[in-house]
Design a protein around this nucleic acid. Structure first.
Lengths: 216, 216
DNA sequence: TTAAAAATACCGGAAAACCAGTAGAAAGAA
DNA sequence: TTCTTTCTACTGGTTTTCCGGTATTTTTAA
């Protein structure tokens, strides 16, 4: 890996200190002139760029964060600092998640099981303006399985509530009481949920939602 | 953190190279005499202890591994090398998972969001014969919510099959056809599943199973 | 070999989910 | 303000799940 001569600034947003340590080590070894900034929540990083401005070249963002999800964080970062390249660094291997990230302006996607070399080469690719994927992420994008094609369905507030309660084993009647609506309304939401997830039962919808990290 | 004078051998089994790097860095800084051995699959590590014997003092094991789950790996390690302390290092924050790990002989449990200091102090505790938890893992153990108390239910082969097919939205009748049994048999399995998970519907069972990583 | 666990299967009935279609009211965006 | 989405609610009917039991056969472990 060729070391880059000019200084670059790389931020990392991840709530796992060990991952922070690991990435720091890898970056220090790969670049002669690099400063790494570590943040463990999305809020911290947003505050930083609001104050310190747009000097960050690259930011590696985990999808699962304590305060905000990486997809929304990506969008906010690109709004505040369009020149910062956002790379997702996550365990989520659903095509829909990758798509969402790219739709929100990300410059690439790294699976957390990628090698140190892949991290560095993806950063380099992103710096040169390309879209960068780790090996496995590229494979996921290349082999679009039927299920994966559909984008993450955008659920309404009410639908999310219904889905969550249904996932806890509550009946439509019980859900209706809690949401102060008619059981018939709940049933309508149920049907819309099944349609959006393209499945034949709420049970299957819950499974897909769990896979996509929309629940629990 | 006091450095330990005598040499210790620490193995790490994790399929995320970056985590391996991070832990290595942390361990090198904390101990003067340490050798770290990295493995990315459970099989690799089992082969190693079969050949090299029982010289490993500590092994950090991720629950989610490509070839075997960390719980089963823990049991096998303790069978082959009872003197090796097994510490789980995982994202799973369900009480049931922690319990399972301890039942299988683990010396402690670290959540992946713990600090570098916690990793080191847990290793020291484990070396001195104690059971070690990271801060959050300790909290989970201390505040037993009703649901969390129950241990990970041991599902039979058939139950797993039924659950998986039900999670895909299939009806009992459809499942029966695929498994070449009576629909009534499938219904019995369904009921047993709900009982084991202590929930009121298969939908809820699927959610819990997904949380515990038993599905998908 | 014997005991325990798992898989199989049944009954009848109540409750709930699912299907297909429609439609007014409210909230947000253009 | 107008258009669109979301939330709301209904009719009426079919299918499926869930509940409570019980019970034989097969497999597995001691």
């Amino acid at each position: 890996m060729l070391a880059d001569k000019k200084k670059i600034t790389i931020a990392i947003v991840d709530d796992h200190p060990i991952v922070l340590e690991g990435l720091q080590k890898v970056l220090m070894q790969a670049y002669d002139y690099v400063s790494t900034l570590c943040f463990s929540t999305g809020g911290e990083f947003l505050n930083f760029i609001k104050k310190a401005g747009t000097g960050t070249d690259i930011v590696l963002i985990d999808i699962t964060l304590p305060d905000i999800n990486g997809i929304d964080l990506c969008r906010e970062v690109k709004t505040l600092s369009p020149d910062t390249c956002v790379l997702a660094f996550s365990n989520h291997n659903e095509r829909s998640t990758i798509m969402r990230m790219l739709q929100n302006g990300a410059s690439g996607y790294l699976l957390k099981n990628c090698t140190a070399g892949e991290v560095v080469s993806c950063i380099n690719e992103a710096l040169s303006g390309q879209i960068a994927f780790s090996r496995e992420a590229r494979e996921i994008m290349a082999r679009p399985s039927a299920r994966d094609w559909q984008v993450l369905p955008a659920l309404t507030k009410r639908e999310k509530e219904v889905l969550k309660l249904a996932a806890d084993g509550q009946t439509s009647a019980a859900i209706a009481v809690q949401l102060h609506v008619s059981p018939l309304t709940v049933e309508t939401h149920r049907r819309n949920l099944m349609q959006k997830f393209n499945v034949k039962s709420i049970t299957a919808a819950v499974k897909v939602a769990m896979e996509m990290g929309l629940l629990g």
